[in-house]
């Protein structure tokens, strides 16, 4: 290690106690950009909602609430498991963390499965106008993000099971940040496209 690297490392260590890690910060910025990405679709939703007299439009049959409600509950549960993982991680109980992570990953998989199963109860197709366009594209992107979350959890889980958590916590924290975003998205989608449409 050169003299410069030692100085840099010292600065890094000094900051490390009060600053978040690079990967968590990078993920936070990424999540911010994701929020803008979805905001564009919700903006289109809002302007369509404002310009239609009947919303959802008459020809759109309302979706059933059972599977979507179960889905959002599983999603929130996976978030709680994840919070458990983060809490045990802070305490240094790495073995317990791996278990919590396994539960959160299972939750993510369950969410994804129910999300896909939910499409069976939808009585309209993607070509049925602006409401259908928004519904399918936004929920489709939600599926894509859930898949991304499962992949992310998978890699983090393997690294955690290999004992990497003793060295660094930031991969789990970064993955958690992403999943919290997916949870927020899932709740908004549920409120807008299921609960809100039915009420």
């Amino acid at each position: 290690m050169s003299a410069v690297e030692r100085v840099m490392q010292a600065a890094e260590d000094q900051r490390g106690t009060r600053a978040i890690s690079s990967s968590v910060m990078g993920m936070a910025i990424f999540v911010a950009s994701e929020a803008i990405f979805f905001a564009a679709f919700f903006g289109v939703y809002a302007s369509s909602f404002a310009s239609e007299s009947v919303w959802p439009p008459k020809q759109i049959p309302l979706p059933g609430l059972v599977i979507p409600t179960a889905d959002v509950i599983v999603l929130v549960l996976s978030g709680l498991f994840l919070t458990g993982a983060l809490a045990t991680l802070r305490r240094g109980a790495e073995r317990t963390t791996v278990l919590w992570l396994a539960a959160a990953t299972a939750g993510a998989l369950g969410f994804l499965a129910l999300l896909l199963a939910g499409y069976a109860g939808v009585g309209f197709g993607i070509k049925d106008g602006i409401y259908a366009s928004l519904f399918y594209v936004v929920t489709g992107l939600e599926v894509a993000h859930a898949v991304g979350g499962v992949v992310l959890f998978g890699t983090v889980f393997v690294r955690a099971a290999n004992g990497e958590l003793a060295l660094r916590h930031d991969p789990v924290q970064a993955a958690a940040l992403y999943w919290y975003f997916v949870i927020a998205l899932g709740i908004v989608v549920f409120l807008i496209f299921y609960l809100g449409a039915t009420l």
Binding site: E52, K127, I130
Partner: peptide, 13 residues
């Protein structure tokens, strides 16, 4: 995919 985000004839704009 047949969506109509930009098609005014079918609710888009």
């Amino acid at each position: 995919l047949g969506t109509t985000f930009f098609d005014p004839a079918q609710g888009g704009s």
